[in-house]
């Protein structure tokens, strides 16, 4: 572990600082344009000043990234800080997109076709597509096991509400 912030650390500060600064400015502008002032300390005050606060702090972070200036030439992989496993940035991004896409799609499916079918579909798709699992017994067992287990435990035993499906409704 190097005692001084290394190039990777600085690069992270640069990325975080600039992205958050843009976000903060967009947020502040949106608040200013769309939220009414109201009376006294109205509905606009808090979100607006929070936006300003974030802008200032992210600017500080950006500055910290820029300072100490060996430029921004990360040697080799920027993502490859000591602890991270050797997975390329592209793969990592793809995984983030896959996981979040799966969760969102699962939510919509649940409403549309009901909890059981949506869960079977989601679990098997996750195993096959995202994790490259090919053994049918594992895929099928996991998919049906999790779906039925959750359905029986929550829906039947505990009496929680399970989405029934608006397109088709099997159960």
């Amino acid at each position: 572990m190097p005692p001084v912030p290394d190039a990777g650390e600085r690069r992270k500060d640069l990325i975080a600082g600039s992205v958050l600064l843009v976000l903060a400015l967009a947020w502040t502008a949106a608040v200013w344009l769309t939220v009414p002032v109201g009376h006294g300390v109205g509905p606009r005050a808090f979100p607006f000043w929070l936006g300003v606060g974030l802008a200032v702090l992210s600017a500080l972070l950006l500055l910290k990234g820029l300072r100490g200036g060996h430029g921004l030439d990360p040697p080799g992989e920027g993502e490859g800080s000591a602890a991270a496993p050797p997975v390329s940035a592209g793969r990592r991004l793809a995984l983030v997109a896959t996981v979040c896409g799966i969760i969102a799609a699962y939510g919509v499916l649940m409403q549309k076709i009901g909890f059981l079918p949506a869960t079977v579909l989601t679990v098997s798709a996750t195993l096959v597509v995202a994790l490259g699992e090919r053994r049918p017994l594992v895929v099928g067992g996991m998919a049906f096991g999790i779906a039925l287990g959750a359905w029986l435990a929550f829906g039947k035993l505990l009496g929680a509400y399970m989405p029934r499906g608006t397109w088709i409704s099997l159960f």
Partner: peptide, 21 residues
Amino acid sequence: VAVIVMCAYGAFAIRNSVFDV
């Protein structure tokens, strides 16, 4: 994978809302 199912359903159950998932 199980955590995905648990959390997605958990998120849904808070207000029975897909928006939350």
